[in-house]
Design a protein around this nucleic acid. Sequence first.
DNA 1: GGCGAATCTTGTCAACGGCAAGATATGGTC
DNA 2: GACCATATCTTGCCGTTGACAAGATTCGCC
Lengths: 250, 250
Amino acid sequence: MTGTRGYHHGDLRRALLDVAVTAIEESGPAALSLRELARRAGVSHAAPAHHFGDRAGLFTALAVQGFDSLAEALDGAGGELLDLGVAYVDFAVRHRAHFEVMFQPDLYRADAAEVRAARERAGAALRAGVATLPALPAQPTLPESRPGTAAHPGTADRSADGADRPRDAADRPRDAADRPRDAADRPRDAADRPGGLDGPQGDVLAAWSIVHGFATLWLAGALPAGVGDDPGEAARTVIRRVFIPAPDPN
Amino acid sequence: MTGTRGYHHGDLRRALLDVAVTAIEESGPAALSLRELARRAGVSHAAPAHHFGDRAGLFTALAVQGFDSLAEALDGAGGELLDLGVAYVDFAVRHRAHFEVMFQPDLYRADAAEVRAARERAGAALRAGVATLPALPAQPTLPESRPGTAAHPGTADRSADGADRPRDAADRPRDAADRPRDAADRPRDAADRPGGLDGPQGDVLAAWSIVHGFATLWLAGALPAGVGDDPGEAARTVIRRVFIPAPDPN
DNA sequence: GGCGAATCTTGTCAACGGCAAGATATGGTC
DNA sequence: GACCATATCTTGCCGTTGACAAGATTCGCC
């Protein structure tokens, strides 16, 4: 049935995705060519198009696969915030190709239903873990609540509906329209209201930001020496340093 | 002198960079075409090559410009950690095109001297600001230091300046073999040693990670609802929530 | 055994990146 | 003012790529 030779490959779609991951790990997503992909898989130059439609379709499939894998990895991390963060960084390092594609939405159709679903699964896993936060420093309400937002008028108005803030593409992913960039179709400052940035929402955002930033900087090779060669452990140290209020020795 | 019409453009290099920024803001770096660039600037398709050599050269120039602008923005932020973080996020949002290129090293020659220098300037500005950290929670030494790993001497730290970790690349950025993906030739665990992740080094890393992660997630459109439409303010809330230990009202 | 549909191939086209060779303007020198 | 080395920009070309169309082969199913 699933022979790998002959006119019908058997599982060409999966094979192409695997080859794509390898190629991306070698040279990055930008350098990925559908024809080179077909060449490596031993099929004709037009074979990939049948399974993915176009280049964006290939990246879309990779993104879905990536968000699903991430959700799985986070679900299996144990529920502790610390382990969750380490799992996140670990995923980024181990599945570098997927991770790079996932957070480069101009490469794929970020608004596709399957992408949204997979991303939501990963997001849920993340939120669930952050909910177990031992007890975030519970920052006392800050002295000056806020200088009065007026300070940053620049980015304020822009598009109210938010969906097409960034690049207004048409229907192609890389063209504008795709870039969700929602985030803007929501109330002005959510920070002060219940569920705002001062509550659990803020915890999630802070935790996600720090692990995502660490992973991204690591992958980009932007981190200076002295971090060590084990990103997972380094991340653990950093997360602990920031998030865990007291040693709680017992 | 700098006439903009005629056989000689006057300042084509700058014009091309400006047009590139606009194009990238519209459709992302991946979609940028040298020919389209030339078309928009009203010059022949080979004109850009004279100034930048190739596509990677163009991105290299953008990266240098970006790191310089970032350094400038950070220097002008005032020295307070909070303002520094907000300035970082603000830069990412306002100079989206530059920021995206800067942290996508497979697009350009990340090991070029000018890039190293500009990146170092930005890094210095960042470190300088973090040094003013009011007094990071001053985490008491953590209970369990770490399961071990201290034994591995690993290869002595090669780049002390830490600028070229990521993709060593020969001279082209995107071809294979470029992606060093090394990360394995640095001292094993730097966390426990002086200057390790438990000291100021850790503060810098944590602060940088959180603002970088926030900015990246924002740009990728990955942030869920509730964040508001002003990334700078949202970042301020998140940073303060994590970093500032006590109100310190005085 | 046969047929519709899925899978894969071959052929083609416009666009791109990169290179080479030529055209045109600029600035300095006598 | 004439001259020339050089920087700047153009034209022309080649191999590769993404996308599409049309055809060939095989599979699932009745």
